[in-house]
Design a protein around this nucleic acid. Structure first.
Lengths: 188, 188
DNA sequence: TTTTCTTGCTAACGGTTGTTAGCTTTTGTA
DNA sequence: TACAAAAGCTAACAACCGTTAGCAAGAAAA
């Protein structure tokens, strides 16, 4: 791992626990055992780090989803796979997930708009599955926008308490959440 | 409304949209049409505002829950009422709810510990209902901690998109969420 | 009318912020 | 060994931060 990647990693965990605005470059340097000015041999700016983390995570979510999208299965099964993929990305790197979910608003233009477009496209992909499920009769709900919002909400707090050493594996968590949410949608 | 309450209100909406750390006293003063120094005729400090907002919301959640707790109904019905109460508090003042949910970590000791105790007690109350429902057979799940985490997570993003002028009323939202989540728990 | 309270202003304080310039040290390589 | 690239240091910059002191104007209360 390069020094730059190491800086990104340590910064990510600080951004997550203290927030982007409340994390100083001197905090970050201290954590790495160097001086604040030395950071600029490796990175362009503080926001530079935030941008890399946010867009890298956006890429990972989209890549994981792309695999699901191409499969020829029922809407319910597709949603199950999408939930599992989402959970997998979320649990693979909880600090980065936390930054992706909570600190993106500190991006400045034009990155902010670009990021929001990616987010909305991702949410729209979920909505598409739910619409498909409504049409096929898999789900007995009417408002797919509301459903997807609730669905992603229940997934997106995972990074707050998930610990790799915990008793549940990412797959078990994904299975649990799929069951809970799909049952809710089926027997509405 | 006193000037102090007005300051709290404007500050709350800034804290929610920009975050506590990224909101300056000069921003706040500008929004109120006065100078930054003038704020200190009314408030003690920046964190003073945050404390008032956080603890006031904690009180509201606990008060709303207390009514539910005392009722003599089934666990499923009690959970339905608790969800409705939670949604009601959440939608009554979305900016304050947002600060309560996302900005409390900027509290300093001893307020931080005190606040966390309140939060944990509130979550424990939810767990108690779910445990009761598991014992009575209302819910077919095993891990009540995980269930409550998922449940509150799906509720707590409401403030992000809820608009009072939207087409769904708080009661309708509460009903929708109760159905979705209780169905998920029942037919697990 | 006098007094007190509320509200606000100006100007500044001590400290912190992200960032830069210029220089030195370490490391890897030919 | 010589040299270039990577990594880090020191010192400082301009800007910004929360907060305070001292004062002034108007409203309310006496």
């Amino acid at each position: 791992m390069s020094r730059k990647e190491q800086i990104d990693q340590v910064a990510t965990s600080l951004f997550k626990s203290r927030g982007f605005a409340a994390t100083t470059m001197r905090d970050l340097a201290l954590e790495l055992g160097i001086e604040a000015g030395s950071l600029y041999s490796h990175i362009k700016s503080k926001e530079d780090i935030l941008q890399r983390v946010c867009f890298k995570m956006a890429d990972e979510f989209n890549e994981a989803f792309a695999e699901v999208k191409s499969q020829d299965v029922s809407a319910a099964e597709k949603l199950r796979l999408a939930i599992a993929a989402h959970v997998r990305v979320l649990t693979k790197n909880p600090p980065a997930a936390g930054v992706f979910l909570n600190e993106w608003r500190h991006l400045s233009e034009p990155s902010l708009t670009q990021f929001n477009d990616l987010r909305h496209a991702y949410e729209e992909s979920f909505r598409e599955i739910v619409r498909e499920g409504i049409a096929s009769g898999d789900f007995q709900v009417s408002d797919e926008k509301f459903v997807v919002l609730t669905l992603l909400s229940s997934l997106n707090w995972l990074h707050m308490w998930y610990k790799p050493e915990g008793k549940m594996s990412p797959d078990e968590i994904a299975e649990f959440l799929s069951k809970l949410l799909l049952n809710g949608l089926r027997n509405f």
